[in-house]
Design a protein around this nucleic acid. Structure first.
Lengths: 114, 114
DNA sequence: ACAAGTACCTACAATTTTGTAAGGTACTGA
DNA sequence: TCAGTACCTTACAAAATTGTAGGTACTTGT
């Protein structure tokens, strides 16, 4: 019975970069096409500007998203998924499918207990 | 727990049930063979008893783990993964692999910036 | 009697995460 | 000059998560 470290299954790092309340959703929105700041804000209406920029910066620091500034005349900033971000998104697909398949049942179970 | 967010993908429910700091690890430990409370405590040395029991109860309520009490003379309780828990564990494998593949690189990047 | 082991529970406090409100720059069109 | 859009920042506060320290009830070993 060897001692198990929290990192033994590789999930630690993954949750570290995608674990927040919004990051997975942002990555999902960004992974198909580049998105502008204001566009993301509209697509995730419940997020505050602070959280959005904070999450984007963290994901940028983790190498998941690429940030490109266009020095144009309405200034424009585009966020897109890097290849690392794409690979993470791919890895999240089975989890998303699981959620789609079983999420409703779990919600129902919780509602019944409460 | 925070309010449910826009569910363009099924990740919301999934993160709801394994989102914590310990749940994924506990599920991972429990998914191969039944584990006793004290055994889990030893396997995850940094967790407090309170957190362990709390997470186990939540996962039980979510239908991920099965709890079986043996009315024996040293009292014994065994936790094992349900089929739902197994399916979630399967869905987490790609994410774990991603973490194993890229976790070190991300840590290194962060260390360099700091 | 009393320490030690098993499986919990409860009150409270620290930590981390998320949110609110208010700005600030830079440019445009009226 | 004034309002408006876009992008971002900061100070502060609420909320969620996690941790600490103690306790219960039971039984075996010394």
């Amino acid at each position: 019975m060897a001692k198990t470290q929290p990192e033994s299954c590789g999930l630690g790092p993954a949750f570290q970069v995608i674990g927040g309340k919004w990051k997975a959703l942002i990555l999902w929105l960004v992974h198909t096409e580049p998105r502008r700041f204001g566009e993301l804000k509209r697509l995730v209406p419940d997020i505050s500007e602070k959280m959005l920029i904070q999450q984007l910066r963290e994901m940028e620091a983790d190498g998941l998203v690429h940030r490109e500034v266009f020095h144009e005349v309405p200034p424009r900033v585009e966020y897109s998924a890097t290849s690392l971000g794409q690979s993470l998104d791919d890895a999240l697909v089975p989890l998303a499918n699981w959620g789609k398949a079983h999420g409703a049942a779990i919600e129902a179970r919780k509602a019944k207990v409460a």
